[in-house]
Simulated scan of single mutants.
Amino acid sequence: MACRVQKRISLRRKLHILRVLTNSNSAKRTSIAKSTVLRLYKLKLALETVKRQYENLLPTRREYISLLNHVKENKDVKIEKVGTRTFMVRVTCEKGGDKLVAILEAFDEMRLNVQQAKVSCENTFSLEAIAVAEDQTVDVRDITESLLKAIGKKSGEEDSQNFDKCCDL
């Protein structure tokens, strides 16, 4: 007899919990069961809607990340010819590596003398310089290509190439 009473009390507690969770005002078991099934069905539909929205957002997220990566890898080199042999050089790129050293080596290879320069590497690496060519055969396009090649080099890449050349002998 005590076992039946405990089962009834347990059942009433469970029905009360279901009634609270499903916002059902009915005291009947069948009504509570129906409202529970209806609530579960609505939750299932809501879950499917959220999954569908998530799947639709994934391609947008991928596109956004690829655009951010493209912006990060932006290299900007602007050369203006100021005089007959004088150039105003502006370089902006991501910071890291030996950018300044590579740019100065490129200037040296092209036989450009730097008269004045400003360098900043707070958020990105930027350089503004006034350079004078030793000969008049230097063109804006040549300087641009040389600087893009210099800032595109990863640090230590040149050393490994020189090492490979030495080992090939």
Rank of each mutant, 00 (worst) to 15 (best):
M88C: 12
V140L: 08
K95V: 06
D168P: 13
E105V: 03
L127K: 03
V82L: 12
L68S: 03
C166R: 14
K34A: 08
I17R: 15
V132T: 01
V5C: 12
V119G: 14
R90N: 13
K153C: 13
D76K: 15
L47K: 15
K51H: 01
I9T: 09
V114G: 07
E134Q: 09
V114D: 09
L148E: 07
N113P: 08
K81C: 05
E55P: 10
S24H: 03
L40N: 07
V140E: 07
K95C: 05
G96K: 03
E145F: 12
V138G: 06
C93K: 00
E134P: 00
S31H: 12
L58V: 10
A2S: 00
K72G: 13
S24M: 03
R61M: 12
T137L: 15
I103P: 05
N74R: 15
G96A: 06
K7G: 03
S31Q: 06
S10H: 06
A46N: 14
L100D: 05
A117Q: 06
L100Y: 08
I103R: 07
I130G: 10
K34T: 00
L18T: 09
L104N: 14
V114I: 10
M110S: 03
D76P: 13
L43R: 13
R111V: 08
A133L: 03
A2M: 05
Q115R: 14
E134T: 02
A150G: 04
F107E: 00
K81W: 04
R90C: 07
S24W: 01
I103A: 02
T92S: 10
V5K: 08
V5Q: 09
Q53M: 07
E128Y: 12
E134I: 01
T30E: 14
K118G: 00
I65P: 10
K75A: 09
K34F: 04
T30R: 14
E157Y: 06
L21Y: 02
A2T: 00
E109W: 06
A129P: 02
D98S: 10
T124I: 05
E48F: 12
E94Y: 11
G152D: 01
R8M: 07
N56F: 11
K78V: 05
K118V: 02
R29T: 00
I130V: 05
F87R: 02
Y41S: 09
T84K: 15
K165E: 02
R52Y: 14
R62A: 13
E55Q: 13
S126P: 07
K81F: 03
V71W: 15
Q136C: 08
N113C: 11
A117E: 01
E73L: 05
A106T: 03
Y64S: 08
R29S: 09
R29C: 06
K99G: 08
L148D: 00
E55W: 11
I151P: 02
S66T: 01
L68F: 04
G156R: 01
V114H: 08
E94N: 10
C167E: 14
K165I: 05
S160Y: 09
L57G: 02
K7Q: 03
T124Q: 08
V119T: 10
E158F: 07
